[in-house]
């Protein structure tokens, strides 16, 4: 019998399946009662996506995680991007990034364009100062930004290896609760997702939180209204 068949046979035996034999300990279980799953939790928040309250909460949460947050008017975005990346030296951008965002970038900041047919190596990314991406959705209650690998966000490695992540979030992408965010992501659940809540951190030493470990040590969120 293959391991697959054997394990499934044991599972059936454990659940009281007739003729399924026994588990490894020689046990046959009983069938569990049917289960009703209650769903009384909040499916939506109190405030509209992109509302002032939701944006304020997102900023509060991100700051709590030691992320840098700036609220930016759409027209000012290229200037703020340029200012944020001024010291980076080099920046990697995903293939589908809005080129206008790079419009004001100083000449001495080298831009690497990651592309499916010409991906940067991990070592290249390690030598790059920063990454600039868009985002798919953000959740204010938990201070979470989700990237799902679409062309304006790029493959996972580019937003991971550089030490500074500059992430542009549009106000209308910000929802209040996790269920609202999940329902936006669900139609494309197969996309590789990274949920980001602040810069990398650890609490492994005496449960004291230290921000900045392997993932980007600095997270800049540019919240565009």
């Amino acid at each position: 019998m293959s391991a697959r068949e054997d394990v499934l046979r044991r599972v059936r035996a454990a659940l009281g399946g007739s003729g399924a034999g026994t588990t490894a300990a020689g046990k046959v279980g009983t069938a569990p009662a049917p289960v009703e799953v209650p769903r009384a939790y909040r499916a939506t928040g109190v405030h509209e996506a992109g509302s002032a309250e939701v944006l304020e909460q997102l900023v509060d949460r991100l700051v709590d995680y030691r992320a840098h947050v700036q609220r930016v008017a759409a027209d000012d975005l290229p200037a703020v991007v340029a200012e944020t990346l001024a010291e980076a030296g080099s920046v990697v951008v995903p293939p589908g990034l809005d080129e206008a965002w790079l419009g004001d970038l100083p000449r001495d900041v080298v831009v690497h364009r990651d592309a499916p047919d010409a991906p940067l190596s991990a070592l290249d990314l390690d030598a790059t100062g920063a990454v600039l991406t868009a985002a798919r959705v953000a959740c204010s209650e938990t201070g979470t930004i989700v990237l799902d690998g679409e062309p304006d966000q790029g493959r996972r490695a580019i937003s991971l290896v550089p030490d500074v992540h500059v992430c542009v979030v549009r106000a209308d992408q910000v929802v209040e609760t996790i269920p609202e965010a999940v329902r936006i992501l669900a139609p494309h659940a197969e996309r590789p997702q990274t949920w980001i809540s602040g810069p990398s951190a650890t609490s492994d030493i005496e449960l004291d939180r230290v921000e900045g470990v392997h993932g980007p040590r600095t997270l800049h969120v540019l919240l565009v209204a």
Partner: peptide
């Protein structure tokens, strides 16, 4: 579960990173 787990484990509203992947994504990972 992504609401229950981080608050229960590290006492954070959300853990810094959650990775979700489905099989193999060409050109990514």
């Amino acid at each position: 579960f992504l609401q229950l787990l981080p608050r229960s484990s590290t006492g954070e509203r959300m853990n810094p990173y959650t990775s979700l992947w489905t099989g193999v994504t060409p050109g990514d990972g």
